[in-house]
């Protein structure tokens, strides 16, 4: 559980942790967006899974993504689902990474007015905290 709260960290709902997930977050902690790359068929599985979603193979390497992508959809939560933890409205985006996977994330400095379909974006990491402690969260800024 978390010790003291650092004011510079954003509080977030809890991550999924455990096998595979821990590796993903550890790479994020190093400022690298890496996803599971199947050692057999070469495809990328996201979100984290125990087996390749295409061929079922269970050994992966963690392939580094360029961090570049484009926005393919977005939505804003106008209702408080997290008991005041996050400000409302809360915007989430769906980014198509250059390597293909679709990645749910948050925009940085992109408003409902600015955002547009196909907008190029690039990853960055922000300091966050959940009940398991501090972590780095990949988010996207207009590129």
């Amino acid at each position: 559980m978390s010790q003291s709260t650092s004011p510079s960290r954003e509080k977030r709902p809890d991550r999924a942790l455990g096998a595979g997930h821990d590796d993903f977050w550890a790479w994020c902690g190093k400022g690298e967006l890496r996803l599971q790359h199947c050692a057999d068929c070469g495809k990328i599985t996201w979100p984290v899974a125990l087996a390749c979603e295409y061929c079922g193979h269970t050994s992966f390497d963690w392939k580094r993504m360029s961090g570049r992508g484009k926005i393919v959809s977005w939505c804003s939560f106008e209702r408080d689902y997290y008991a005041g933890l996050l400000p409302i409205p809360w915007m989430t985006i769906l980014v198509e990474l250059e390597e293909g996977p679709l990645f749910i994330s948050n925009p940085v400095d992109i408003t409902e007015q600015d955002i547009r379909f196909g907008m190029p974006v690039a990853v960055e990491f922000i300091a966050c905290e959940d009940s398991a402690g501090g972590f780095s969260l990949p988010v996207f800024r207009a590129a």
């Binding site: 991550r15 979100p47 984290v48 959809s73 689902y81 769906l94 749910i104």
Partner: peptide
């Protein structure tokens, strides 16, 4: 949507919202 909680993702409704935004585009 469970996996996406740290990005504040929630609610079945968000799936339909993403679909409609894409449909609009």
């Amino acid at each position: 949507y469970y996996y996406y909680l740290p990005w504040g993702w929630s609610s079945q409704a968000a799936h339909w919202a993403l679909m409609f935004r894409y449909y609009q585009a």
